[in-house]
Amino acid sequence: MVTIDDYGKYETAWCPGCGNFSISEAVKKALVERQLAPHQVLFVSGIGQAAKAPHYLNTNLFNGLHGRSLPVATGVKLANPGLTVLVESGDGCNYGEGGNHLLAVIRRNVDLTLLVHNNQVYGLTKGQASPTSAGGFVTKAQPLGVPSEPFNPIAVAVAMRAGFVARAFSGRIEHLSEMIQQGIAHRGFALIDVLQPCVSFNKVNTFAWYDKRCYALPHDYEPDDWESAMKVACEWGDKIPIGVIYRNNRPSFESHFNVLKDGPLVSRKVDKTRLKDIMKAYG
């Protein structure tokens, strides 16, 4: 029986009141609900305040570079598909620095769960605009306000027919944990964009701001319907939908590799008979 204690208790480097605490709690709950033991799980993260989250969790971790967690996770998953792989990082990491990797991982449909702590700001570097910052958002780096339009990760993911696309809010831990569980259960790529207040650098999109706007999608909402999903994906303003916005059953990336049908790549031995056969081509 896996319990919450198995995932440990750690001191963090986060500001009191930060939304990251609730996200970590929801992650633990989800792992325990799914009865995954710490050694069966591997987190990959990038760099940022969000990316520190897996350090506060007793499990396997590869904390790589800013923006580069998705390709690392792809490599891990191809090498050992038996691992449950989650990627956890910020909006800057995934939508800015690593934007190209997000598009590629959606196309591939690698069986990963990506948790984006979306605080609409760069936390770790002290408050510059992020790709999801609202137009006009004022920071020390953008004193006249952000001149660009914000990136809509949900709309992009739905447009690309990503396998599983959800939004959650760190203030609704049960719901968030449920989203994470479904993301893990989904065989293929799962994007969970988590709205997360940053108490230090985002004074616009606060807990109250999100709390007032977020509403759970109704029970009869059909996430399999791409066209309605596209509409919901574009909703942002006075009302922000949370829940599973789109889902499909595309085969996962790993399932395309015949090689993996003989077991994971890790600890496989060199087959000398086959090598000799390969060498014949050069004779």
Binding site: V76, L78, R274
Partner: peptide
């Protein structure tokens, strides 16, 4: 030779992804 040799060769979206994928796969044991 990939199928016969039991390996995976993946064309990445860019060289940054390529090396990070390789690091990930190697970390996992490939």
């Amino acid at each position: 030779h990939a199928e016969r040799a039991g390996i995976i060769v993946e064309q990445a979206e860019d060289e940054i992804a390529a090396i990070n994928m390789a690091v990930g796969a190697s970390f996992a044991g490939a």
